[in-house]
Design a protein around this nucleic acid. Structure first.
Lengths: 155, 155
DNA sequence: ATTTTAGTTCGGTAAGTTCCGAACTAAAAA
DNA sequence: TTTTTAGTTCGGAACTTACCGAACTAAAAT
Protein backbone atom coordinates (compact mmCIF):
# COMPACT_ATOMS: atom_id res chain seq x y z
CA UNK A 1 0.00 0.00 0.00
CA UNK A 2 1.49 3.35 -1.02
CA UNK A 3 1.29 6.57 0.97
CA UNK A 4 -1.55 8.01 -1.04
CA UNK A 5 -3.74 4.94 -0.54
CA UNK A 6 -2.90 4.90 3.12
CA UNK A 7 -3.92 8.50 3.63
CA UNK A 8 -7.16 7.90 1.78
CA UNK A 9 -7.93 4.98 4.07
CA UNK A 10 -7.06 7.05 7.11
CA UNK A 11 -9.56 9.69 6.07
CA UNK A 12 -12.22 7.03 5.58
CA UNK A 13 -11.43 5.59 8.99
CA UNK A 14 -12.00 9.01 10.56
CA UNK A 15 -15.57 8.92 9.27
CA UNK A 16 -16.13 5.37 10.51
CA UNK A 17 -14.68 6.07 13.93
CA UNK A 18 -16.56 9.34 14.13
CA UNK A 19 -19.82 7.45 13.72
CA UNK A 20 -18.82 4.94 16.39
CA UNK A 21 -18.05 7.73 18.84
CA UNK A 22 -21.35 9.33 17.88
CA UNK A 23 -23.20 6.12 18.69
CA UNK A 24 -21.56 6.25 22.10
CA UNK A 25 -23.00 9.66 22.78
CA UNK A 26 -20.48 12.13 21.38
CA UNK A 27 -21.73 14.79 19.06
CA UNK A 28 -20.58 14.30 15.45
CA UNK A 29 -17.94 17.02 15.30
CA UNK A 30 -16.47 15.94 18.62
CA UNK A 31 -16.24 12.35 17.47
CA UNK A 32 -14.47 13.35 14.29
CA UNK A 33 -11.95 15.53 16.13
CA UNK A 34 -11.18 12.58 18.38
CA UNK A 35 -10.83 10.26 15.38
CA UNK A 36 -8.58 12.75 13.55
CA UNK A 37 -6.21 12.92 16.50
CA UNK A 38 -6.12 9.13 16.64
CA UNK A 39 -5.65 7.98 13.06
CA UNK A 40 -3.42 10.44 11.26
CA UNK A 41 0.34 10.14 11.08
CA UNK A 42 0.64 13.61 12.45
CA UNK A 43 -0.27 13.22 16.11
CA UNK A 44 -0.31 16.85 17.20
CA UNK A 45 -2.71 19.29 15.58
CA UNK A 46 -3.16 22.99 16.09
CA UNK A 47 -6.59 24.56 16.33
CA UNK A 48 -6.37 25.86 12.77
CA UNK A 49 -5.19 22.56 11.38
CA UNK A 50 -8.22 20.84 12.91
CA UNK A 51 -10.55 23.48 11.48
CA UNK A 52 -8.90 23.13 8.09
CA UNK A 53 -8.69 19.33 8.02
CA UNK A 54 -12.28 18.67 9.14
CA UNK A 55 -13.78 21.72 7.41
CA UNK A 56 -15.61 22.86 10.53
CA UNK A 57 -16.13 26.31 11.97
CA UNK A 58 -13.81 27.78 14.56
CA UNK A 59 -16.66 27.85 17.07
CA UNK A 60 -17.39 24.14 16.63
CA UNK A 61 -13.72 23.36 17.00
CA UNK A 62 -13.46 25.51 20.11
CA UNK A 63 -16.46 23.90 21.78
CA UNK A 64 -15.50 20.40 20.66
CA UNK A 65 -11.97 20.68 21.96
CA UNK A 66 -13.26 21.99 25.25
CA UNK A 67 -15.60 19.01 25.60
CA UNK A 68 -12.80 16.54 24.84
CA UNK A 69 -10.53 18.18 27.39
CA UNK A 70 -13.28 18.14 30.01
CA UNK A 71 -13.79 14.41 29.44
CA UNK A 72 -10.09 13.85 29.83
CA UNK A 73 -9.69 12.47 26.31
CA UNK A 74 -7.22 15.00 24.91
CA UNK A 75 -4.65 17.48 26.16
CA UNK A 76 -2.49 20.17 24.63
CA UNK A 77 1.09 21.22 24.84
CA UNK A 78 2.61 24.50 23.87
CA UNK A 79 5.98 25.23 22.38
CA UNK A 80 7.90 28.19 23.87
CA UNK A 81 7.82 31.16 21.52
CA UNK A 82 4.79 29.75 19.69
CA UNK A 83 1.33 30.92 20.63
CA UNK A 84 -0.48 27.90 19.21
CA UNK A 85 -1.79 24.98 21.22
CA UNK A 86 -0.85 21.54 20.00
CA UNK A 87 -3.64 19.09 20.70
CA UNK A 88 -3.15 15.37 21.01
CA UNK A 89 -4.95 12.43 22.51
CA UNK A 90 -4.21 11.79 26.14
CA UNK A 91 -2.68 8.38 26.60
CA UNK A 92 -4.00 7.37 29.97
CA UNK A 93 -3.28 4.16 31.74
CA UNK A 94 -4.60 1.49 29.37
CA UNK A 95 -6.38 -0.15 32.30
CA UNK A 96 -8.70 2.85 32.57
CA UNK A 97 -10.58 1.46 29.59
CA UNK A 98 -11.35 -1.67 31.58
CA UNK A 99 -12.15 0.41 34.63
CA UNK A 100 -14.83 2.25 32.65
CA UNK A 101 -16.44 -1.04 31.75
CA UNK A 102 -16.23 -2.18 35.35
CA UNK A 103 -17.93 0.98 36.57
CA UNK A 104 -20.78 0.49 34.11
CA UNK A 105 -21.33 -3.08 35.27
CA UNK A 106 -21.29 -1.92 38.88
CA UNK A 107 -23.85 0.75 38.11
CA UNK A 108 -26.16 -1.79 36.52
CA UNK A 109 -25.68 -4.14 39.43
CA UNK A 110 -26.62 -1.34 41.80
CA UNK A 111 -29.85 -0.67 39.95
CA UNK A 112 -30.78 -4.36 39.76
CA UNK A 113 -30.11 -4.69 43.47
CA UNK A 114 -32.52 -1.86 44.17
CA UNK A 115 -35.14 -3.41 41.90
CA UNK A 116 -34.78 -6.70 43.72
CA UNK A 117 -35.04 -5.09 47.15
CA UNK A 118 -38.32 -3.49 46.18
CA UNK A 119 -39.96 -6.65 44.87
CA UNK A 120 -42.85 -8.01 46.92
CA UNK A 121 -42.07 -11.54 45.79
CA UNK A 122 -38.34 -12.34 45.80
CA UNK A 123 -39.06 -15.55 43.93
CA UNK A 124 -41.00 -14.06 41.03
CA UNK A 125 -39.88 -14.67 37.48
CA UNK A 126 -38.20 -11.29 37.19
CA UNK A 127 -36.67 -11.50 40.66
CA UNK A 128 -35.04 -14.78 39.76
CA UNK A 129 -33.79 -13.44 36.48
CA UNK A 130 -32.27 -10.40 38.15
CA UNK A 131 -30.66 -12.54 40.84
CA UNK A 132 -29.03 -14.52 38.09
CA UNK A 133 -27.76 -11.38 36.41
CA UNK A 134 -26.36 -10.04 39.65
CA UNK A 135 -24.70 -13.36 40.32
CA UNK A 136 -22.93 -13.37 36.98
CA UNK A 137 -21.92 -9.74 37.35
CA UNK A 138 -20.37 -10.47 40.73
CA UNK A 139 -18.59 -13.46 39.30
CA UNK A 140 -16.96 -11.50 36.52
CA UNK A 141 -16.19 -8.43 38.61
CA UNK A 142 -14.37 -10.68 41.06
CA UNK A 143 -12.36 -12.34 38.31
CA UNK A 144 -11.62 -8.97 36.82
CA UNK A 145 -10.12 -7.72 40.07
CA UNK A 146 -7.85 -10.72 40.28
CA UNK A 147 -6.57 -10.27 36.76
CA UNK A 148 -6.07 -6.59 37.28
CA UNK A 149 -3.83 -7.32 40.24
CA UNK A 150 -1.81 -9.84 38.27
CA UNK A 151 -1.54 -7.49 35.33
CA UNK A 152 -0.40 -4.62 37.50
CA UNK A 153 2.23 -6.70 39.25
CA UNK A 154 3.68 -8.01 36.03
CA UNK A 155 3.33 -4.72 34.15
CA UNK B 1 -41.02 -0.74 54.69
CA UNK B 2 -44.77 -0.95 54.07
CA UNK B 3 -46.41 -1.61 50.72
CA UNK B 4 -47.27 2.01 50.06
CA UNK B 5 -43.69 3.16 50.60
CA UNK B 6 -42.42 0.35 48.44
CA UNK B 7 -44.67 1.25 45.54
CA UNK B 8 -43.66 4.89 45.81
CA UNK B 9 -40.00 3.87 45.62
CA UNK B 10 -40.72 1.62 42.68
CA UNK B 11 -42.26 4.51 40.79
CA UNK B 12 -39.24 6.67 41.56
CA UNK B 13 -36.94 3.90 40.38
CA UNK B 14 -38.77 3.80 37.06
CA UNK B 15 -37.79 7.42 36.49
CA UNK B 16 -34.18 6.81 37.48
CA UNK B 17 -33.86 3.71 35.32
CA UNK B 18 -35.61 5.45 32.47
CA UNK B 19 -32.93 8.12 32.48
CA UNK B 20 -30.18 5.50 32.55
CA UNK B 21 -31.68 3.73 29.54
CA UNK B 22 -32.02 7.13 27.88
CA UNK B 23 -28.32 7.80 28.41
CA UNK B 24 -27.65 4.49 26.71
CA UNK B 25 -29.48 5.60 23.61
CA UNK B 26 -33.12 4.67 24.17
CA UNK B 27 -35.73 7.31 23.69
CA UNK B 28 -37.36 8.45 26.94
CA UNK B 29 -40.69 6.68 26.58
CA UNK B 30 -39.02 3.44 25.53
CA UNK B 31 -36.71 3.55 28.52
CA UNK B 32 -39.61 4.05 30.89
CA UNK B 33 -41.61 1.19 29.41
CA UNK B 34 -38.60 -1.05 29.91
CA UNK B 35 -38.17 0.17 33.47
CA UNK B 36 -41.87 -0.34 34.23
CA UNK B 37 -41.72 -3.96 33.11
CA UNK B 38 -38.66 -4.49 35.28
CA UNK B 39 -39.48 -2.91 38.61
CA UNK B 40 -43.15 -3.41 39.35
CA UNK B 41 -44.54 -6.36 41.25
CA UNK B 42 -46.86 -7.05 38.37
CA UNK B 43 -44.59 -8.49 35.70
CA UNK B 44 -47.01 -8.70 32.78
CA UNK B 45 -48.66 -5.55 31.46
CA UNK B 46 -51.23 -5.10 28.73
CA UNK B 47 -50.97 -2.30 26.20
CA UNK B 48 -53.64 -0.28 27.98
CA UNK B 49 -52.08 -0.78 31.39
CA UNK B 50 -48.80 0.59 30.06
CA UNK B 51 -50.58 3.58 28.51
CA UNK B 52 -52.41 4.18 31.76
CA UNK B 53 -49.51 3.65 34.14
CA UNK B 54 -47.00 5.83 32.25
CA UNK B 55 -49.58 8.35 31.02
CA UNK B 56 -48.39 8.17 27.43
CA UNK B 57 -50.32 8.12 24.18
CA UNK B 58 -51.32 4.90 22.48
CA UNK B 59 -49.12 5.76 19.53
CA UNK B 60 -46.05 6.22 21.70
CA UNK B 61 -46.77 2.94 23.43
CA UNK B 62 -47.26 1.17 20.13
CA UNK B 63 -43.99 2.46 18.67
CA UNK B 64 -42.10 1.96 21.91
CA UNK B 65 -43.21 -1.64 22.32
CA UNK B 66 -42.29 -2.36 18.73
CA UNK B 67 -38.78 -0.98 19.28
CA UNK B 68 -38.31 -3.07 22.41
CA UNK B 69 -39.45 -6.21 20.66
CA UNK B 70 -37.14 -5.52 17.73
CA UNK B 71 -34.19 -5.16 20.09
CA UNK B 72 -35.12 -8.44 21.70
CA UNK B 73 -35.68 -6.87 25.12
CA UNK B 74 -39.33 -7.78 25.63
CA UNK B 75 -41.85 -10.32 24.39
CA UNK B 76 -45.55 -10.90 24.78
CA UNK B 77 -47.79 -13.82 25.50
CA UNK B 78 -51.47 -14.12 24.88
CA UNK B 79 -54.09 -15.90 26.90
CA UNK B 80 -56.60 -18.02 24.94
CA UNK B 81 -59.95 -16.27 24.74
CA UNK B 82 -58.35 -12.91 25.55
CA UNK B 83 -57.44 -10.57 22.79
CA UNK B 84 -54.88 -8.56 24.78
CA UNK B 85 -51.16 -8.98 24.58
CA UNK B 86 -49.33 -9.39 27.86
CA UNK B 87 -45.91 -7.80 27.63
CA UNK B 88 -43.02 -8.77 29.83
CA UNK B 89 -39.25 -8.50 29.76
CA UNK B 90 -37.48 -11.28 27.96
CA UNK B 91 -35.18 -13.15 30.31
CA UNK B 92 -32.37 -14.19 28.04
CA UNK B 93 -29.37 -16.18 29.05
CA UNK B 94 -27.68 -14.01 31.68
CA UNK B 95 -24.38 -14.51 29.91
CA UNK B 96 -25.65 -12.49 26.96
CA UNK B 97 -25.04 -9.37 29.01
CA UNK B 98 -21.36 -10.27 29.18
CA UNK B 99 -21.38 -11.21 25.52
CA UNK B 100 -22.58 -7.72 24.63
CA UNK B 101 -19.67 -6.23 26.51
CA UNK B 102 -17.31 -8.64 24.81
CA UNK B 103 -18.60 -7.66 21.38
CA UNK B 104 -18.07 -4.00 22.13
CA UNK B 105 -14.49 -4.60 23.20
CA UNK B 106 -13.89 -6.64 20.07
CA UNK B 107 -15.29 -3.88 17.93
CA UNK B 108 -12.97 -1.34 19.51
CA UNK B 109 -10.04 -3.67 19.12
CA UNK B 110 -10.89 -4.04 15.44
CA UNK B 111 -10.86 -0.29 14.92
CA UNK B 112 -7.62 0.19 16.82
CA UNK B 113 -6.03 -2.57 14.75
CA UNK B 114 -7.02 -0.75 11.59
CA UNK B 115 -5.64 2.52 12.93
CA UNK B 116 -2.38 0.80 13.76
CA UNK B 117 -2.11 -0.82 10.34
CA UNK B 118 -2.46 2.55 8.67
CA UNK B 119 0.21 4.31 10.71
CA UNK B 120 3.38 5.30 8.84
CA UNK B 121 5.41 4.96 12.01
CA UNK B 122 4.51 1.88 14.06
CA UNK B 123 6.62 3.20 16.94
CA UNK B 124 4.99 6.62 17.21
CA UNK B 125 3.51 7.75 20.51
CA UNK B 126 -0.03 6.93 19.47
CA UNK B 127 0.97 3.64 17.85
CA UNK B 128 2.56 2.52 21.08
CA UNK B 129 -0.44 3.60 23.10
CA UNK B 130 -2.80 1.70 20.82
CA UNK B 131 -0.62 -1.40 20.93
CA UNK B 132 -0.90 -1.27 24.68
CA UNK B 133 -4.65 -0.97 24.53
CA UNK B 134 -4.93 -3.88 22.13
CA UNK B 135 -2.67 -5.93 24.35
CA UNK B 136 -4.83 -5.37 27.39
CA UNK B 137 -8.01 -6.03 25.44
CA UNK B 138 -6.64 -9.35 24.24
CA UNK B 139 -5.60 -10.22 27.74
CA UNK B 140 -9.04 -9.68 29.17
CA UNK B 141 -10.92 -11.23 26.27
CA UNK B 142 -8.83 -14.35 26.72
CA UNK B 143 -9.52 -14.52 30.44
CA UNK B 144 -13.17 -13.88 29.79
CA UNK B 145 -13.42 -16.89 27.49
CA UNK B 146 -11.86 -19.13 30.10
CA UNK B 147 -14.26 -18.04 32.79
CA UNK B 148 -17.20 -18.36 30.47
CA UNK B 149 -16.30 -22.00 29.85
CA UNK B 150 -15.96 -22.68 33.55
CA UNK B 151 -19.22 -20.95 34.29
CA UNK B 152 -21.06 -22.84 31.60
CA UNK B 153 -19.77 -26.19 32.77
CA UNK B 154 -20.73 -25.57 36.35
CA UNK B 155 -24.01 -23.88 35.51
C1' DA C 1 -0.13 52.39 18.79
C1' DT C 2 -2.26 49.28 15.62
C1' DT C 3 -2.47 44.96 13.57
C1' DT C 4 -2.32 40.14 13.69
C1' DT C 5 -2.92 35.75 15.86
C1' DA C 6 -5.36 32.36 18.34
C1' DG C 7 -8.90 31.40 19.89
C1' DT C 8 -13.96 32.28 22.74
C1' DT C 9 -18.70 33.52 23.26
C1' DC C 10 -23.26 34.56 21.71
C1' DG C 11 -27.47 34.41 18.94
C1' DG C 12 -29.75 32.32 15.54
C1' DT C 13 -31.08 28.70 12.41
C1' DA C 14 -31.52 24.25 10.25
C1' DA C 15 -32.12 19.66 11.08
C1' DG C 16 -33.44 16.00 13.84
C1' DT C 17 -36.10 13.86 17.65
C1' DT C 18 -39.93 12.77 20.35
C1' DC C 19 -44.30 12.64 21.18
C1' DC C 20 -49.18 13.37 20.49
C1' DG C 21 -53.98 13.23 18.46
C1' DA C 22 -56.81 11.78 14.81
C1' DA C 23 -57.94 8.68 11.54
C1' DC C 24 -57.56 4.14 10.45
C1' DT C 25 -57.71 -1.38 10.49
C1' DA C 26 -58.71 -6.02 11.62
C1' DA C 27 -60.72 -9.17 14.57
C1' DA C 28 -64.11 -10.34 18.01
C1' DA C 29 -68.42 -9.40 20.45
C1' DA C 30 -73.08 -8.05 20.59
C1' DT D 1 -74.65 -6.13 10.77
C1' DT D 2 -73.02 -2.88 13.85
C1' DT D 3 -70.18 -1.92 17.68
C1' DT D 4 -66.33 -2.53 20.49
C1' DT D 5 -61.65 -3.76 21.40
C1' DA D 6 -56.87 -3.64 20.66
C1' DG D 7 -53.96 -1.80 18.66
C1' DT D 8 -51.31 0.76 14.08
C1' DT D 9 -50.10 4.46 11.07
C1' DC D 10 -49.67 9.16 9.63
C1' DG D 11 -48.94 14.18 9.94
C1' DG D 12 -47.53 17.63 12.43
C1' DA D 13 -46.36 20.49 16.80
C1' DA D 14 -43.00 21.30 20.27
C1' DC D 15 -38.80 20.74 21.73
C1' DT D 16 -33.75 19.79 21.47
C1' DT D 17 -29.28 19.51 19.30
C1' DA D 18 -25.59 20.67 16.45
C1' DC D 19 -23.50 23.81 14.05
C1' DC D 20 -22.38 28.19 11.99
C1' DG D 21 -21.10 33.21 11.40
C1' DA D 22 -20.24 37.44 13.53
C1' DA D 23 -18.61 39.96 17.06
C1' DC D 24 -15.53 39.85 20.60
C1' DT D 25 -10.99 39.36 23.65
C1' DA D 26 -6.37 39.01 25.15
C1' DA D 27 -1.77 38.49 24.06
C1' DA D 28 1.95 39.01 20.84
C1' DA D 29 4.01 41.03 16.78
C1' DT D 30 4.95 44.98 14.06
Amino acid sequence: MNTEERIKKQLELIETMGRIFEREGMQPVVGRIMALLMVMDKEMFTFDQIVEELQISKSSASVGLKILQASNSIEYTTIPGDRKRYFRIKSQDPLSLMEDIKRKIEEKRGILTQVLELKADPESRNSQFFKNLIYIMNHFLEKYEKHKEKYQNKG
